[in-house]
């Protein structure tokens, strides 16, 4: 057991993957000597060399496009997009090529490319540095989309993403990079596409992922003394969703709140609400409610505390489910 921050846990996971498989490459802006702006790739270029840890020109489409080419040649590139808001120049390569090429080849091509994206707000950053673009990617067939929320998952899930033969969009909650936890390197990891009950409860199922997991756990702890028991599920995999675990929980609790930083409208919560309504209709005591960002561009950072759903906004949604 070692205590690691999330950033260090992902770093260790990358290191292990690179040691295990010489085809694993790291690519991105400033990932070499600097170790990435969040230091997630710290020390890797020093130990694995410039041909495996590649400082790329500043062009995101180029990063993904050349990663596809390297994957076609048998490599397993792990691309870092420096910030969530910078992924859009690469969206064309991700959506039109990375997601679709295996199908185009009738399965003859596999593209084991991982796209790491530090995501979400809460760090007081300037525009384009605080976004939650996951729904753009969960909407695209051919991609797997996952979000880690803690160092244990950071360490294991990045390795699973690299081993996966499908393209994976890997979201990392940047405001949780410095959170610490005990990580057991030898432990058998949870399956890559499974959700996890991170706090069992009986009254309301709270579905969340990424940076909001911690917020929801704090919310659950805060209402415990009021005698209200929240079951918090970290979805981990956003496409595919572990609906089996979600439905089982909601059938038990009869109530559900989905919390994410991304805008509520057309967000992952909408998909979850629709699916839960269809599968758990007769178990529901209230409609599925959502706590999330507004349908606006991400606001200036002095306002982000109003935009981001915090503990109170999550609990407000919980309260409202009891009003039905």
């Amino acid at each position: 057991m070692t205590t690691l921050t999330l950033a260090k846990a992902i770093n260790e996971g990358l290191r292990t993957a690179m040691e295990d498989d010489s085809k694993v490459l790291i690519m991105g802006e400033d990932v070499g000597k600097l170790g990435g702006v969040f230091r997630v790739t710290d020390g890797l270029q020093k130990d694995f060399g410039e041909s495996r840890v590649i400082d790329t020109p500043l062009a995101e489409s180029g990063i993904i496009g050349t990663a596809i080419g390297l994957a076609l040649r048998g490599y397993r590139p792990v691309c870092e997009i420096q910030f969530d808001g910078f992924v859009f120049p690469a969206a064309d390569q991700i959506i039109t090529q990375l997601a679709k090429m295996p199908l185009r080849s009738l399965g003859k091509i596999k593209l084991p490319v991982v796209v790491r994206i530090p995501c979400g707000g809460g760090i007081g950053a300037v525009e384009h540095h605080s976004e939650s673009p996951e729904a753009y990617f969960t909407h695209t067939g051919g991609l797997r989309v996952v979000a880690c929320s803690n160092p244990v998952d950071g360490y294991h899930m990045i390795q699973q993403a690299i081993r996966c033969d499908d393209p994976v969009i890997f979201f990392e909650p940047k405001r949780r990079y410095w959170d610490k936890a005990e990580v057991e390197r030898g432990a058998a990891p949870l399956a890559f596409d499974r959700a996890q009950i991170v706090r069992p409860g009986t009254d309301v199922t709270v579905l969340t992922y990424g940076p909001m997991v911690k917020t929801c756990l704090e919310a659950a702890a805060a209402v415990e003394q009021d005698g209200r028991s929240l079951e918090v599920i970290d979805l981990r995999s956003l496409n595919p969703l572990d609906t089996e675990m979600v439905f089982e929980s909601v059938r038990r609790t009869g109530r559900c709140v989905v919390a994410h930083e991304a805008p509520v409208f057309s967000g992952l919560g909408a998909e979850l609400a629709a699916r839960i309504t269809e599968a758990c209709f007769y178990s529901l005591e209230a409609p599925v409610l959502r706590a999330g960002g507004f349908s606006t561009p991400y606001p200036p950072s002095r306002l982000e505390d109003h935009y981001l759903p915090d503990l109170d906004r999550v609990l407000d949604a919980v309260d409202r489910t009891f009003a039905f």
């Binding site: 489409s61 496009g65 050349t66 080419g69 390297l70 040649r73 390569q93 090529q97 080849s105 091509i109």
Partner: peptide, 30 residues
């Protein structure tokens, strides 16, 4: 598409204009 690019060393047709230039460079880096 449907032919095996590796069998012929001829990649699949790319319809979005210019996308394949990056794939080719990545492949060359490989």
């Amino acid at each position: 598409g449907g032919w095996d690019p590796a069998e012929h060393n001829f990649h699949l047709y790319t319809i979005v204009i210019g996308s394949q230039t990056l794939h080719a460079v990545g492949y060359a880096m490989g």
